[in-house]
Amino acid sequence: MSVADRSFALSQNSRNRQRSNFELYAWLFMRVSGIVLVFLVLGHLFIMNILDGGVQRINFAFVAGRWASPFWQIWDLAMLWLAMLHGTNGLRTIINDYAERDQTRFWLKMLLYVSSAFIILLGTLVIFTFDPTIG
């Protein structure tokens, strides 16, 4: 969201006489999480797709080797949460921009929030309960 979009969102807020700073914090979160994600995601893509044979060397044993280290567990967990929240907020902005009917906007955002919550919880569960001796 640009500065102009933000001031528009803020002016809408004051029009509704809700003095909430949510849109300001959302705007700030996109920038802060964005900077962190540049390192986490580009690092992830470089390791997984380019380094040392790229995607061809990835299999269950490769994942088990990485998640044996807390460093990569924390990396992946931080990347999961930040990327999902960043993307969910981005899609929320897009739905607000293009879905004109109140009902449509509401239900699209509900669908977005429910599916994002599901993916975040599933991903978190997988990282924390990973068992290299499964099967």
Partner: peptide
Amino acid sequence: VLDTALVRVSP
């Protein structure tokens, strides 16, 4: 995330 979650199903 869904495809990675398959590590919890089986190798």
